[in-house]
Design a protein around this nucleic acid. Structure first.
Lengths: 380, 380
DNA sequence: AGGTGTACGTTCAATCCCTGAACAAGGGAG
DNA sequence: CTCCCTTGTTCAGGGATTGAACGTACACCT
């Protein structure tokens, strides 16, 4: 705070840069109205930013100048590890996706193999898009497990035994020689839905990802909430039934053991054989009574958790993502029913439960978003 | 943001006012060092504040001027309704308590009777302190039920039937002819513990009040978190046992039906006769096995809820207040044990569970705090 | 086609704010 | 008692924002 005047100028410069980055491109007049600054100030600041190479100015008819964020060169990569898949997307800085691919993948392997697979898939995508490896400027990496936000090291050895203690961002960064930011897959899904999807513009949101496991992430005042030590949102391991089935986290009756995709798969195996979550959802949509029942039961268990969440946090919106979310109303209606019954009325009235709009791409898109706007999260 | 320059000045003025209010009284030089502003700026702003009557200046030897917050005149009252008691405190603006009293009280009565009782107790206290009624400038009011933060009207007719639909702040304000701010008793307890008690200076805190019922309140980034519609923290009515006992909220197996004081009283009635929660805690401290067991069981049930809370929010501190908290380790150790078992390890390691420091006075002190600093809460 | 109105971006003087330096006034150490 | 340090004030200087005035170009109406 050496000089509050220059600090003020800095603030306003940042304000304008942010506004430009968010809106894509606008004229100075629009900028002035949106920021509340006077046209004169906008004029001088825009010139400064142009001289600094932070924005680009193009003529747009009349005196209108179109201010756009500087055409960021280079590409970014999003990597999304699921329990049973690995998805990678190659995108421009503007988030336009150039190439994307998902492959089946078993998270049970050790970290080195997993990261090697990601590296191979990235290089494959580069080749397909005809892009040189050096074009990649940054990578966003999503993982289905707890990550210490201070160190970036994965914790909780019981959940992903092959990954505990490793620093995936550093590892992958060393392999590719670019900066890598890492985050929980549910956090990234929430980020994607908040940026482009069902939670766009909402402030108090809970996001639940129901894939093989169950993860969650919380947006408070529009920002990712991480809690005191960065593990907020582990809704998959709250206890629903103290005497329930053993969970991979070591406890009994976690939500995940009742509503996770793995459980559903196990439940239909005797009658339907080995299926994937997506196949199970397909069958349910096709009218299969057993699958519908299994999904509805999962919804009811999820409803118990969402009701607790509503009582505790009183969110305005709950977004359901992950493979099971594709069941749509088959899953969401039971959730709502249970929430209506178990949550206190004022919290139940306040909340809407919807399916995510980005589907299975949420994680990888969130990874792309995370690379660009690392500061959407709460300060911590 | 009409004029950013004047906005800047406003910010700095506020910065100085806050610093003065916090530190009690200091010199201009100290002020300059603490705020990072130049002595010149401090000088002019202090003069402005003096002229506006917001601070007082006294000579303190040499050129030293002692800047102190203006001696606030008048008194404030805190009112805390519990399920079974009513507590009122009369205090100076500086929070020095002049008189305080608690009486047994049944929240089952209708709102007018309750507010009349509060009024009588306030007038009683005024007489005892020898203070005129006109000295009261504001009242803080705590109630053990959900309050719509927009309208101030009490909701959820099932929980406090005699109070649903009334606007207690307006009612009491009309009776006493002073402004009244109203809030949930758990929120006020949290506020008090955060201001003077066990949570002083902590940022991520959950407060649980276990009296006749069970309430909770959440501090996020040091501010009261209210959620989308103001009912965040209703932890007493999360479902622990879907097939459990009926709760006054209309559901089954709420935490409150398992760990609320009322349940404990009911449990020991066959063997110990009708007792209060405080008496039950006394007996437990005296070595009564039955009471100890009942409290430990309640602790285990609370532990399930706290574990969920930890998984969802990952707080750094959980403060236990209310009458049952006086059981101390008899209650808290079972909580910690269950949290250690059910919460994910990283969240369990992060959290400390402690007894509140303010005891049964937490609510009424919080009401006093709330009158003075209504802006501690999140913006919403 | 021509005229008029409107919106846009730039420039400039005015205004407001913060800061560094100079300065007066005391208190404390030696 | 003197020197030195700290404190608060004053003043000039430089930044930053703004309102008003101005030139320009497009759109629309006649």
């Amino acid at each position: 705070m050496a000089n509050s005047l220059t600090a003020l100028r800095e603030t306003n410069r940042r304000l304008i840069t942010e506004t430009v980055r968010k809106s894509g491109s606008l004229t100075q007049a629009q900028l002035a109205r949106q920021t509340g600054l006077s046209p004169a100030t906008v004029s001088t600041i825009v010139r400064e930013l142009r001289d600094a190479g932070l924005v680009e100015i193009s003529q747009a008819g009349g005196r209108r100048h179109l201010i756009s964020p500087v055409r960021e060169t280079g590409l970014v990569v999003g990597v999304d590890f699921g329990h049973s898949h690995l998805r990678v997307a190659l995108a421009e800085r503007s988030h336009r996706v150039l190439a994307e691919e998902a492959i089946p993948f078993d998270m049970g392997v050790r970290a080195p193999e997993g990261l090697a697979a990601a590296e191979r898939l990235i290089i494959d995508l580069l080749g397909r898009a005809g892009v040189d490896r050096a074009e990649i400027k940054a990578v966003g990496l999503g993982l289905p497990g707890p990550i210490d936000p201070q160190t970036g090291i994965m914790g909780s050895s019981t959940i992903l035994p092959g990954w505990a203690g490793v620093d995936p961002a550093a590892e992958l960064g060393r392999r590719l020689d670019v900066p890598v930011v890492v985050d929980n897959d549910a956090n990234l899904g929430a980020l994607a839905e908040a940026t482009w999807g069902a939670a766009k513009g909402r402030r108090e949101v809970a996001y639940m990802k129901i894939g093989t496991g169950v993860g969650a992430s919380i947006l408070i005042d529009g920002r990712l909430y991480r809690g005191a030590t960065g593990t907020a949102g582990e809704l998959g391991h709250i206890t629903i039934d103290e005497n329930g089935r053993l969970c991979r986290c070591g406890n009994r009756g976690c939500l995940e053991t009742l509503a996770g995709g793995q459980q559903l798969i196990d439940l239909v195996r005797p009658t339907h054989g080995q299926v994937t979550v997506s196949r199970l959802v397909e069958l349910a949509h096709g009218g299969d009574i057993g699958c519908r029942r299994v999904i509805a039961d999962a919804g009811r268990h999820l409803g118990v958790a969402v009701a607790s969440l509503c009582n505790i946090l009183n969110p305005g919106l709950v977004v359901i993502g992950g493979a099971l979310a594709e069941a749509g109303p088959l899953l969401i209606e039971p959730i709502m029913t249970v929430v209506g019954r178990l949550a206190i009325p004022s919290a139940a009235h306040a909340v809407t439960v919807v399916k995510g709009e980005l589907g299975e791409r949420a994680g990888v898109l969130g990874a792309l978003a995370r690379v660009q706007s690392p500061n959407i999260e709460s300060a911590l």
